[in-house]
């Protein structure tokens, strides 16, 4: 069958591409299906300086190299598609793409990764790219000598707030809790910077403007009081959410919608494995995604081999 594979990997970030490399190199007929651009969160990183064995590399270059490696071993990759249906309960797994193309396999590795969390406030979509940004290195220079807000209290938020002081004249960090989640080092750096001030226990509830963002409404989480603030830009760094919306009711997820796996990356369904930022784990790094992808691929390869052996034995017995 032209559209049948030994393994289908859903997602082409660090975990999915690594699984693709390992499976294809082991001569497991493998297809990667990817809804977005190849590379996932990796391409959102300008420079990766802590990937062992590779000195400073852009996320884009690392992703392209992984993709080429996987393809060289025979892995097929289809990106920017839409998965419209998933049937993972039976021995033969079925994935429907764009409502028309049906792909089947003996095993599936879910490596759908994560995406930047949005605030969810009124006007957020409307002012994206017109005052609201999720990438300091991309858009920081549009805010030279402007007043901006950085939303968040983790490592990324405080690190980027300090980095944005190269451009902005004044930065207000708005954080929903009364303390930061960032490591002490990042908190100290931000607090000692004269351009940075803080509004704690508060959330942006509305973005207001005409052609571009001009003002925000901020709500104090303790008192409920809402105040307005004139602002030129808002940078949002409030973490990531796993891309598992389409997996609800299909595989077992935890309370944060992360896929529950065992140490060998098995999900609750036989023949279905998961790896990378979409699984339940503490640390989300390119290196940990690569490790997850490796383990998932090796476990999946073992599963596929055992399955094929069982089928051969059954056929022989008949």
């Amino acid at each position: 069958m032209e559209n049948h594979f030994d393994a289908i990997i859903i997602g082409a970030g660090a975990a999915g591409l690594t699984a693709g490399i390992y499976l294809s190199r082991a001569k497991v007929n493998t297809l990667i299906l990817n809804e977005g651009a190849v590379g996932g969160q990796m391409v959102l990183t300008h420079e990766i300086a802590n990937y062992p064995g590779v000195e400073n590399v852009s996320g884009y270059t690392l992703a392209r190299t992984m993709k080429t490696q996987a393809q060289k071993f025979g892995c097929k990759i289809k990106s920017n598609i839409k998965i419209t249906s998933l049937e993972l309960n039976d021995e033969i797994k079925k994935v429907v793409v764009n409502d028309k193309d049906v792909y089947t396999s003996n095993a599936v590795i879910i490596a759908t990764g994560g995406k930047s969390r949005m605030i969810g406030a009124i006007g957020e979509e409307e002012f994206k790219g017109k005052g609201i940004s999720y990438c300091a290195t991309c858009d920081g220079d549009f805010f030279q000598d402007k007043e901006i807000i950085v939303v968040g209290g983790g490592n990324s938020a405080l690190e980027e707030a300090v980095s944005l002081t190269k451009y902005a004249s004044k930065i207000t960090v708005v954080h929903q809790f009364d303390r930061f989640q960032a490591l002490e080092h990042y908190v100290k750096e931000a607090k000692k910077n004269e351009k940075i001030s803080f509004i704690m226990e508060s959330k942006i509830v509305e973005f207001i403007g005409n052609e571009k963002l001009e003002e925000v409404k901020i709500q104090n989480q303790r008192t409920g009081e809402i105040s307005k603030m004139k602002i030129d830009g808002v940078f949002v760094f409030i973490g990531y959410v796993p891309n598992t919306e389409s997996l609800q009711g299909i595989v077992e997820l935890n309370q944060w919608n992360e896929i529950i796996v065992d140490k060998d990356m098995r999900t609750n369904l036989p023949g279905v494995f998961a790896a990378g930022d979409s699984i339940q784990k503490r640390y989300r790094q390119v290196t940990t995604a690569v490790a997850d992808g490796t383990i998932a691929a090796l476990t999946a390869a073992e599963y596929i081999n055992n399955l094929k052996k069982e089928i051969a034995e059954q056929e022989f017995a008949q």
């Binding site: 977005g36 651009a37 996320g59 990106s79 990438c135 858009d139």
Partner: peptide, 16 residues
Amino acid sequence: GRMGPMCIPVYEVMEE
């Protein structure tokens, strides 16, 4: 654009 995280996905879609 530039070879940055917000631009690369758009180029990739265009290539496809």
